[in-house]
């Protein structure tokens, strides 16, 4: 059996692709970098939009990246329920700008960039989070200026009603509506989160990110009867 293929998007300004690739590769998947000028290849199972910046983010974070061939191809990619799109930080911002996720991310209510380890609470029974009980606390780093999740009240209610608020901050760090830190789309296979799980893979900070990504991949494999993880982890440069 072949390994699941995780594609890591690279835009001009992306700066988290290497640690994201390493974090995924440690769970026995094949990792490949995806250049922003090309649509998603057919054999990719997961697309991860990592943190950093994209095209300068001068207008709004993610506002330009939504027009890239890679992001344009994600709408069709996500139509396949076996595929997963995960946006982390700038990736989450891109997914909302592309309207693949509801709401928007705007400037922190403090007006300053926030870089620290925070606690987030698991708040969903999402199938990819099986193994994490709602109410469980994860320690994950955040690093964002535009991390305040906002949406109209009806959208916020719908997210809660559909059990698609995956994570909430345990304290109000940036003014996000209802302390929302991560959400999933209606179909469940498009996910965005502001915290960086790929930076929480060592006991010096936290290993909760490694555990989270490992469980998500394991649940995905079980859910889709998917391809095994035998062999050594690999990253295609």
């Amino acid at each position: 059996m072949t390994r699941p293929v995780v594609g890591i998007a690279v835009f001009p300004g992306t700066n988290c692709e290497r640690e994201t690739a390493r974090a995924f590769a440690s769970h026995g998947v094949s990792v490949r970098y995806l250049w922003h000028e090309e649509p998603v290849p057919e054999d990719v199972d997961w697309v991860v939009l990592p943190g950093g910046f994209s095209y300068g983010d001068y207008l709004r974070a993610g506002a330009i990246a939504r027009f890239s061939p890679l992001v344009r191809s994600l709408e069709a990619f996500a139509q396949d329920p076996r595929k997963v799109v995960l946006g982390i930080c700038n990736g989450f911002q891109i997914l909302t700008e592309a309207h693949l996720l509801p709401g928007a991310l705007t400037w922190n209510h403090t007006g300053v960039f926030l870089c620290r380890v925070v606690e987030v609470e698991v708040t969903s029974h999402h199938p990819l989070l099986r193994g994490l009980a709602p109410g469980e606390i994860l320690r994950l780093p955040v690093a964002h200026g535009e991390g305040r999740f906002v949406a109209d009240p009806e959208t916020i209610r719908e997210l809660s009603r559909k059990d698609t608020v995956l994570f909430r901050y345990t304290e109000d760090i940036n003014g996000s509506a209802e302390r929302i830190a991560g959400i999933a789309g209606t179909e469940g296979n498009v996910i965005g989160m502001m915290p960086h799980p790929e930076r929480a893979v060592h006991p010096l900070i936290s290993t909760d990110g490694a555990r989270l990504l490992g469980l998500m991949l394991q649940n995905w494999r079980e859910h889709h009867g998917a391809r095994g993880a035998e062999g050594s982890p690999q990253v295609a440069a």
Partner: peptide, 8 residues
């Protein structure tokens, strides 16, 4: 649709 984000 671009310069302003209609969501916010």
């Amino acid at each position: 649709n671009f310069l302003a984000n209609p969501v916010i």
